[in-house]
């Protein structure tokens, strides 16, 4: 959401840059992970391979855009931190791939990771430096397309995947909450409000679940699962 008031932010403050080195890393890692995940899903659903390859290419472009944001501020992204940050999602996605569980793969990548990206980018945009703002504004538009893609597939296959979505949600939503809490201090150093990110996530995620076919009651139950 657009913030009602924005205080002047010193983008060269050492504390800002220190936090940025980790936030920038996890964003870049998230985009790289997304690229790899979409390519994987293209292999799992060969009839949609072309689409997935296109989505993966968009994610590769996003990663480069965010690398440029770090360079613009003179920050070296702490990629070891970024990799560790995505570790659980990475492992859960790979496990699902191993058992050919496309529903879980879609829930992790197209719903959870995309919704978190959308929420975080939406809250970041009003407090970003000019360079990063332009890049992030374009990225967030793409992420909605990605979210819609996963949403459409799950909607088309809703009856067969309903329980699997709920199961994947129960296993992976708490991971997302944990990641959000972990990053709270650094996000706050960038003037990003944790509450606002969480709310934005719940809005995007709830809307998606509802579009897929879940009832309001199910959406409320699913999206509150394991909330901190």
């Amino acid at each position: 959401m657009t913030q009602a008031t924005v205080h002047a932010i010193n983008y060269q403050d050492p504390k800002y840059l220190d936090a940025y080195s980790r936030i920038n890393a996890l964003v870049i890692e998230g985009e790289r992970e997304a690229e790899s995940n979409y390519l994987t899903m293209g292999e799992m659903l060969p009839e949609h391979k072309e689409d997935f390859v296109r989505l993966a290419a968009m994610e590769r472009k996003h990663a480069k855009g965010f690398e440029a944001c770090g360079n613009n501020l003179g920050v070296t992204a702490d990629m070891a931190y970024g990799k560790k940050f995505f570790d659980t999602f990475h492992r859960n996605f790979q496990d699902a791939k191993g058992r050919k569980d496309i529903v879980t793969c879609l829930v992790i990548q197209s719903l959870l990771i995309e919704c978190f990206a959308i929420a975080a980018y939406n809250i970041y945009i009003p407090v970003a430096d000019d360079f990063a703002r332009k890049i992030t504004e374009n990225v967030v538009k793409d992420e909605y397309i990605h979210l819609n893609y996963g949403e459409k597939w799950l909607k088309d296959n809703f009856e067969n995947s309903r329980e699997a979505i709920q199961q994947a949600n129960a296993e992976n939503l708490p991971v997302a909450w944990r990641m959000l809490n972990e990053v709270e201090k650094d996000a706050s150093a960038l003037s990003m409000d944790r509450e606002a990110v969480l709310e934005d996530f719940l809005i995007a995620y709830g809307e998606t679940l509802s579009n897929i076919g879940f009832t309001t009651r199910e959406v409320m139950q699913m999206s509150a699962k394991g909330i901190a």
Binding site: E195, E199, L202, G206, T216, A224, I227
Partner: peptide
């Protein structure tokens, strides 16, 4: 009463992040 126990057991912190609902 509506059976949304996940919402019922949380305090104000949760309502501060809860999304709008068509009820």
């Amino acid at each position: 009463n509506l059976g949304y126990d996940e919402f019922a057991e949380h305090d104000l912190e949760f309502w501060c992040v809860a999304p709008p609902q068509m009820v």
